[in-house]
Write a protein that binds this DNA or RNA. Structure first.
Length: 816
DNA sequence: GACTTGGAGGTACC
DNA sequence: ACTGGTACCTCCAAGTC
């Protein structure tokens, strides 16, 4: 029997004490099929250099006797092979020890406590990762599987799965020709009358897929839109939900915040109603794994919480201030959630129910559209990292980097380093910070004709060019480079490339390739691939400095920052020596004034600098700007770092660090500042901007400012009780709690500062929630929002904006 | 009670 | 705990006069 097969969801189970892999996927006809494969687990014992062949043979005899006896199974040593491998870049002789069940790898490793063994490794790699590495059966690629059909009795009744066939793999071959795989994506969303999980009832569930829209409910059964289906009670609705999922056969069931809300809620209500939420292809119920955010999984169907994927791989590109469904959809799809005022369900009228159904459906529709939009990204990440979608949509950046490393180590014949133990993590964290990037001290002013250079993937290119990693860190020796890393002294790295820099180099090259491919033939897939490689490259530096990393190397991270500093300082010097004034620089970018030079001369300078840069380091032109503005710090005369505004020759603004881009300032101050910056950069002078300010001040004093313009948004970063300083946003949280509104860590709180009857000195005493009655506090919005936001901009023109606000006549210095 | 100062807290830049 | 360090700025908390 031979089938075409695209692996989608991976799982494993024990059969007769052994690990059996179960992969759900699609065949050529789009039918859901299951491939069964046996996993042959092993771990490595790395031998000490001086161990003789005779000693090895004796050691093997001792190891062969190891058994792990448990009630349910017995793990034995199945086979031992002697192999030559690399470990941390050094050649080693190892014993590859095959065992019966991988779940016992840890206890087996504990028993390998022999003096001939210097280290035990690869007993702590996730089983499915190990399986994918060994079998090369990677997610979302197309294979030909040759094997035998498993009948009803095979593997303890595996064929009870809801699939068209189960095949035991004998041979796995990759088909090189790309086959377009379009998955069946189904999005869902629930509405409940209480936010706390399981506390209230689920009022309705919506589903959205390709040409499919449905709202299931039981609360209101009078006439409604045709997509609404009504049932007699919550239990029946839940049963129908399960039925629909089974009928629709999605590959992916996608929610938004569904890991922590929708799926756990469904499970809790199902339990309460004594309904089995048997969504799994084996009729199992969803399971939940603990973590910072719990992960909710369904056997055989990939449950994806799209929010988590967007958060890690896309949030840095979004302008949205929250990653909520509404804002993200508005930005990416140009369409937001339906407006709907929540009321207690008992008080709703017919019309309101219709609106509620529409609202619920729209959430699923948006989630589905976003899922379609992010499908290329999910696919490419999954292919590049060779891990199932379930994992790559939930992993953080460091985990993604590590996953890439794990799957690519076999190319270097490397044995994988272990995860740091709890104590090791503690020690690493206690080391504190090392010196980071260089930031140029700017001088406040409005500049004409500004040029911006930046280093392409600077930190990655430093790591690659200087070979900085755990495996190349060395004590002494020739053919090394020495890097000063501040108070930690010096670090030395061998020049012989280690796998880390080689892998990273490959990532950068693949990124370039994907980018070129995209230019030649634009497709969402090439774009997603390019982006995935870019993110991996950018996270590699942080990974080496991350205390939880297998290949943690503080020295490498510190050396990367040190060499990047050295490089940018040298480059700045070269630019200055060429006769240019450098006005700003942060980490990997340099701003200079074009002055009387023409663009060609600037580009020639760039070319010259590039010819002298080491390794793969590269400086590129970011853009030519017509004007740029830098301001002073609030508290002093000196220029503020990480705050500037530029305008391109086409009139496009680039604003960094200013209150305009900070969500914890009210829209009034932000929008005014943004307009002021725009007018000044367009005009090259402040006249029009000043008029605008005066107009706004007048509106403020006449109370003409709209409510939403004065709302301040601040995130609640920890539970209310843990705050040492009671700041305004904490008061907002307390007030919300008192009103019975949901208050969760991570929430963006909204409040405004109101006038108070008695004189109160603290800001927090004037905090009011959006729906509270009260007038905005003119003094506060003037002195704490508007003036601070524009003050140092007008300082550049020697205008004291406070005096303007007070009605005094302002003078320019030149007029004295 | 007014004022200063340091720290907590949040958010941005790269 | 879930990539790193650098920087700005507000408001509170606690100290000084």
């Amino acid at each position: 029997m031979q089938i075409n097969f695209i692996p989608i969801d991976y799982d494993y189970f024990d059969f007769q004490g052994r690990n059996i892999i179960r992969i759900i996927g699609r065949n050529e006809q789009g039918k859901r099929v299951c491939v069964i494969d046996e996993f042959k687990p092993y771990l490595y014992a790395i031998l000490k250099d001086e161990v003789t062949d005779k000693q090895i043979q004796e050691l093997i005899k001792k190891i062969e006797k190891i058994t792990i006896d448990l009630n349910s199974r017995t793990t034995k040593i199945e086979k031992i092979q002697i192999e030559g491998k690399n470990f941390l870049g050094k050649q080693v002789k190892v014993l590859k020890i095959f065992i019966t069940n991988y779940k016992d790898a840890h206890p087996v490793a504990d028993k390998l406590d022999f003096p001939e063994i210097q280290a035990r490794r690869e007993y702590d790699i996730p089983l499915l990762t190990k399986y994918i590495i060994d079998s090369k059966l990677e997610p979302l690629q197309t294979y030909i599987i040759t094997g035998e059909i498993i009948d009803n009795n095979g593997y303890g009744g595996i064929s009870n799965l809801d699939v068209s066939l189960v095949i035991k793999a004998e041979k796995i071959e990759l088909i090189k020709e790309k086959q377009e795989f379009s998955p069946k994506i189904l999005a869902y969303d629930i509405e409940s009358d209480e936010f706390e999980i399981g506390k209230g009832e689920i009022l309705m569930i919506s589903l959205a897929g390709k040409n499919f829209k449905k709202v299931l409910t039981w609360k209101y059964c009078k006439k409604s839109a045709d997509y609404v289906e009504c049932f007699k009670d919550e239990a029946e609705m839940l049963e129908k939900f399960v039925e629909y999922i089974k009928k629709l056969e999605p590959d992916f069931l996608i929610g938004y915040f569904s890991d922590g809300f929708d799926l756990p809620y469904l499970r809790a209500r199902a339990e309460k109603n004594k309904v089995k939420l048997s969504l799994g292809l084996d009729n199992s119920q969803p399971t939940f794994a603990r973590g910072r955010i719990p992960s909710s999984s369904i056997s055989g169907i990939v449950h994806i919480d799209l929010f988590r994927f967007i958060e890690t791989v896309y949030s840095q590109y979004l302008e949205s201030e929250t990653l909520g469904l509404n804002e993200v959809s508005l930005e990416l799809l140009g369409e937001g959630k339906k407006e709907f005022d929540f009321k207690h369900s008992g008080k709703m009228k017919e019309e309101e129910w219709s609106e509620f159904f529409e609202y619920n459906l729209q959430d699923s529709v948006l989630t589905w559209k976003l899922a379609e939009k992010f499908w290329p990204d999910m696919l490419e990440f999954s292919k590049i990292l060779r891990e199932p979608l379930f994992d790559i949509t939930r992993d953080g950046m460091s985990q993604l980097v590590e996953t890439y490393i794990l799957h690519n180590l076999p190319n270097y014949n490397e044995i994988t380093e272990k995860r740091p133990l709890y104590d090791e993590i503690g020690e690493r964290r206690n080391l504190g910070k090392y010196e980071g990037a260089f930031v140029f001290q700017p001088s406040p002013g409005l500049y004409e004709n500004v040029v911006m250079f930046d280093f392409t993937s600077m930190y990655s290119s430093v790591i690659v060019s200087f070979n900085l990693s755990k495996t190349t860190l060395t004590e002494k020796g020739k053919d090394t480079i020495e890097v000063g890393i501040g108070k930690d002294g010096t670090a030395r790295f061998s020049k012989k490339p280690g796998f880390f820099s080689l892998m990273l180099k490959e990532i950068i090259e693949k990124r370039k390739k994907a980018k070129q491919e995209y230019k030649k033939n634009p497709s969402n897939y090439a774009k997603a691939r390019s982006n995935a490689y870019k993110l991996l490259a950018n996270a590699a530096y942080g990974y080496q400095g991350f205390f939880g990393a297998r290949y943690y190397c503080r020295e490498a991270a510190a050396a990367t920052a040190a060499l990047a500093r050295k490089s940018i300082l040298e480059t700045i010097e070269k630019i200055q020596k060429a006769g240019y004034e450098v006005i700003y620089s942060d980490t990997d970018s340099i701003c200079l004034l074009q002055d009387k030079k023409n663009k060609q001369e600037v580009l020639e300078l760039l070319k010259k600098i590039n010819s002298q840069l080491p390794g793969i380091m590269e400086l590129e032109l970011e853009d030519f700007y017509k004007r740029g503005l830098w301001v002073s710090k609030r508290a002093s005369e000196s220029g503020a770092k990480k705050k500037y505004a530029l305008i391109t020759e086409e009139g496009k603004l680039k604003i960094r660090g200013f209150e305009t881009v900070r969500r914890d300032w009210c829209p009034l101050a932000r929008e005014l500042q943004s307009e002021v910056l725009k007018l000044i950069l367009e005009d090259g002078k402040e006249t029009r901007a000043l008029e605008l300010v005066k107009k706004t001040l007048k509106n403020l004093k006449e109370r003409k400012i709209q409510r939403e313009e004065i709302m301040i948004h601040t995130q609640l970063k920890k539970p209310i009780s843990e705050y040492k300083a009671i700041t305004p946003h904490v008061i907002a949280a307390v007030k919300m709690k008192e009103k019975g509104m949901p208050v969760d860590v991570g929430m963006l709180l909204e409040y405004f500062i109101a006038e108070t009857r008695e004189k109160k000195s603290l800001v927090r005493e004037k905090v009011k929630l959006p729906d509270e009655k009260g007038e905005y506090n003119i003094k506060y919005y003037l002195e704490h929002q508007i003036l601070p936001a524009i003050g140092n901009i007008f300082d550049v023109f020697n205008i004291n904006i406070k005096e303007v606000a007070d009605g005094k006549k302002q003078k320019k210095l030149g007029e004295f």
